[in-house]
Design a protein around this nucleic acid. Structure first.
Lengths: 255, 255
DNA sequence: CGGTCCCTTGATATTCATCAATATCAGTGG
DNA sequence: CCACTGATATTGATGAATATCAAGGGACCG
């Protein structure tokens, strides 16, 4: 609400925030919905202040009220196992919708934490359901998004069930790469917002193993890492290692 | 369509087959939907002859047309990795809906194969979507079912990412146990319709490891196995091993 | 400048996969 | 009814991949 004293500035800001002008609308909820309906969707969405790194979008066990779309930044979702340790279930980039797994139980079965400064759109679920009843395309898009999520879960299962440590890391890098590309960023060079610890946790590997793999990949000339920044020098080889034989392989990937 | 010459017999048969009288309707699509609406749902569902063990509900890559609900028997879903090996993504029992992951891409990203003689209901998706537009509760139930599926995927990820071999097998046994119980069968004694190979594949373990674990569990007095039949003698200990500390732990489990 | 956190690297231990041999079972045909 | 075949399961011996333990190095922050 800075600049709230000047109507014009607000307008510009709200245009920038509207779904219809959001660069992510092709990936997000508005996809495939008519313009007027996007406006109706827009009307129920609440924007939030940017979240600082380390703060929570929602906590594990919170009552379910809203879905959240990521506008910028990144988020990890995780559960806590009985023994108290964390299991990361996903890294989420702009345009992705989180909280879908809470619909069933009315309570978030996982928590969501910002990996860096992150801004999100909150979508109150009840109001969205009402709207979906009136706008069938919205309901359809919801189903499609959830279906896509099931797809990527399936891939992740294969990853954890069948693949070796280096294949897993390569798969994560390629998944991030493809997703950055979809969002208009370089697929070869990006910033790893998650810690090595998070990566290991997510991939089912010890942190030391992850570290060693980064070193080895670098030695082999596949990548170039400098703490959080990474450059994928041999995208093709990594892709092969990861088991993504070609771009036509699998429509969606998630990490 | 046997007995099609006699109206009365058909009536009895159709009553037995109708959603409204199906013992699974609490678990399946009709849950939470008014009686008249269940009838409308019923009207679009096609029943199929029982499938023989080893035959397919749908193949990997098939064009997506319908969802399938399992009436009796059991089904495994699987994907094929680039190197040609199979990865089982789930074992499915009566009342469960399969094919949801095909909504996004209009093509089945996994195959589904009957583990034993199995009968299913086919639900043409387009007609169901039309109906859902008229019956909001149906759309809501769809979302809930998909959300539940996301939940169980999350648990499975933890299983594969964090747990040791014996914890994994225990978790599978407990998951099956709980699901049999929900369906009115004994939670302590049941038939494993899947092969050891399938179990290992699903749990990310070698078949030999699975075999050894069955032996060890038996030696420890936790279970009693005779080829496909299993008796869980120490449900509580298994539960603990699996990491299901209590019945209030996690609302839904899947294997 | 010192402290803390995160990461890296090396040495050792453990778990589980792999290889190989044998056993069991279901079905088939003699 | 029994021997034969192929598929599936068990068990043992070995090895490889990765976790764990331990120590040191760098980067960021006050």
């Amino acid at each position: 609400m800075t600049n709230s004293s000047n109507g014009k500035v607000i307008d510009i800001a709200s245009v920038k925030l509207a779904c219809s002008s959001c660069s992510l609308h092709q990936l997000c909820l508005p996809m495939g919905i008519g313009l007027d309906d996007v406006e109706r969707l827009d009307a129920i969405i609440k924007r939030r202040r940017p979240l600082a790194r380390g703060s929570y979008v929602f906590h594990l066990g919170d009552t379910f009220r809203s879905l959240y779309a990521i506008r910028s930044g990144s988020v990890k979702t995780y559960t806590i196992t009985e023994d108290g340790s964390e299991q990361i279930t996903g890294f989420h980039l702009p345009g992705e919708l989180i909280g879908l797994d809470a619909i069933n139980s009315n309570q978030h079965p996982c928590g969501a934490k910002a990996l860096e400064t992150t801004s999100i759109c909150e979508i109150p679920f009840e109001r969205m359901e009402e709207l979906a009843a009136a706008v069938p395309a919205l309901g359809r898009q919801m189903l499609r998004i959830m279906s896509r999520e099931l797809n990527s879960d399936g891939e992740l299962l294969t990853l954890l069930g069948k693949k070796s440590a280096d294949e897993r890391l390569a798969a994560l890098l390629i998944s991030l790469s493809m997703r950055f590309q979809e969002r208009g960023f370089s697929p070869r060079e990006f910033h790893l917002s998650m810690s090595r610890n998070d990566i290991g946790n997510y991939l089912g590997l010890a942190i030391e193993t992850v570290s060693r793999l980064f070193s080895r990949f670098q030695q082999q000339g596949l990548i170039c890492v400098q703490s959080k920044y990474i450059h994928l020098k041999e995208l093709h080889q990594l892709r092969e290692l990861a088991g993504f034989s070609g771009p036509d392989d699998i429509p969606q990937a998630r990490a």
